[in-house]
C-alpha cells in the first residue's frame, strides 16, 4: 500500500553498473517464506552482499561506505524474471525511493509503483554518465523532481516519462485498489453478465 507521498528528492545515489539484474538477485527465493511485507531490506541483494559465512563482500556497492542515499542506479533491464513483489519490498525496506535505469522489466515496474518506489527511465547515455560520475565521485547529489519529471546531477539534466495516473498516485500516496473498489457496482454487473 503506497501511503507515502513523493514530490521531490535530493540524495546521494548508489551505483550498480550491472545489466539484467533479475529479481532472484534482488531477493533470492529462499527469503520468500515470510508472510508479511516487512524486513526484506536485510536480504536485499543477499548473495552479492554477503558470502556464505554471512560476511559482507568487500567491493559490493551496498557494502561500500562511500555510497549511500535513497537512489539506486542500475544497468539496463532491471527487475527481470520472477514477479515476486518481495523485490520491490526489499528495495523499499532498505530505504531506496527511486531506481534509475535505462530499461525496466514490466512486472517489476508495476510492483515498484505499487510500493512507493519510482522506477525512473533515463537514456543509455545519461545512465552511463551518471554511473561513471557516481563511481568517480560518490558524494554527487542527484535530484529527482517528480512534479516536473526531471532528474539532474552536476549540470546534467534529463526529463523522464511517467504516466499521469501513476504520477498522481505517487504524489498523493493513492492505491490502485481504492479506485477499483469505487467501481464495485460496474464490476458486479460485468461478472453477472459473463458467468
Amino acid at each position: 500500500m503506497s501511503k507515502e507521498k513523493f514530490i521531490k528528492l535530493v540524495s546521494q545515489a548508489v551505483p550498480l553498473p550491472i545489466e539484467n539484474i533479475d529479481t532472484d538477485q534482488i531477493i533470492p527465493a529462499r527469503f520468500l517464506k515470510a508472510t508479511t511485507r516487512e524486513g526484506f531490506g536485510d536480504n536485499l541483494f543477499r548473495d552479492w552482499r554477503y558470502d556464505s559465512d554471512n560476511q559482507p563482500i568487500a567491493g559490493f556497492a551496498l557494502n561500500d561506505s562511500r555510497y549511500s542515499g535513497k537512489i539506486l542506479v542500475a544497468g539496463k533491464n532491471f527487475g527481470c524474471g520472477s514477479s515476486r513483489e518481495h523485490a520491490a519490498w526489499a528495495i523499499h525496506d532498505y530505504g531506496f525511493k527511486v531506481v534509475v535505469s535505462s530499461f525496466f522489466a514490466d512486472i517489476f515496474k508495476n510492483n515498484a509503483l505499487n510500493n512507493a518506489v519510482l522506477p525512473l527511465v533515463v537514456s543509455d547515455a545519461f545512465l552511463k554518465e551518471l554511473l561513471d560520475t557516481l563511481q568517480a565521485n560518490p558524494s554527487t547529489e542527484v535530484i529527482v523532481d517528480l512534479e516536473n519529471q526531471t532528474i539532474s546531477f552536476n549540470n546534467k539534466k534529463e526529463s523522464f516519462d511517467i504516466n499521469a495516473y501513476k504520477k498522481t498516485c505517487l504524489i498523493n500516496g493513492y492505491d490502485d485498489i481504492d479506485y477499483l473498489l469505487s467501481l464495485n457496482k460496474e464490476i458486479k454487473e460485468y461478472d453477472l453478465a459473463h458467468s
Binding site: 518481495h86 512486472i107 505499487n114 477499483l180 467501481l183
Partner: peptide, 13 residues
C-alpha cells in the same frame, strides 16, 4: 503474472 499488491486487487475486485 502479477505482484502481490495486484493479487490483492484481484481478490478484492
Amino acid at each position: 503474472g502479477i505482484g502481490t499488491s495486484e493479487v490483492e486487487q484481484v481478490l478484492a475486485t
